[in-house]
């Protein structure tokens, strides 16, 4: 309501003003997470490495989206758009991967490379 807005830093305009402490907190967490993701790489955790890297990246991305991009304060429909776009990227990745990994075994090994003359470097193939 406008009364509430009035004592909120005399803000009459549209949209929501994000508190400084939130902005700086997000900045610091992002930098710490960046440091963390670099450090984690030094340990060999097998296939967990990429999972951890992606989890940290997603954590960072969520912070940016929620606070820098105001999604936390926005109309929920904007978040729906973001999430559904990611969902469609996921569908795209999963279905393509499903197919491509399923037929890899039926590819004749070195068929294509058997077509090329090893005497020529890659850029003279055509």
């Amino acid at each position: 309501m406008s009364e509430a807005t009035a004592h909120h830093e005399e803000h009459h305009g549209v949209g929501h003003i994000v508190d400084w402490r939130v902005l700086i907190g997000v900045l610091v967490s992002l930098l710490i997470l960046t440091w963390l993701t670099v450090k984690v790489t030094e340990f060999d955790l097998g296939s967990l490495n990429i999972v951890i890297a992606l989890v940290i990246a997603t954590l960072k991305a969520s912070l940016v989206c929620l606070f820098f991009m105001h999604l936390y304060y926005d109309q929920p429909f904007n978040s729906i758009i973001l999430v559904s776009s990611l969902l469609f990227v996921l569908i795209f990745i999963l279905f393509s991967l499903l197919d491509l990994s399923a037929y890899q075994s039926s590819i004749i090994p070195d068929y294509i490379s058997s077509l090329r003359d090893p005497a020529y470097p890659l850029d003279q193939l055509k």
Partner: peptide
């Protein structure tokens, strides 16, 4: 704002194509 978010969704899908290429080659 809604318009911009829709545009950002298109950007995500534009890059999404490259992430698909990445995911597939990284996996295979």
């Amino acid at each position: 704002k809604l318009g911009m978010w829709l545009f950002l969704a298109t950007e995500i899908l534009l890059f999404g194509g490259l992430f698909v290429a990445y995911a597939i080659y990284r996996n295979l």
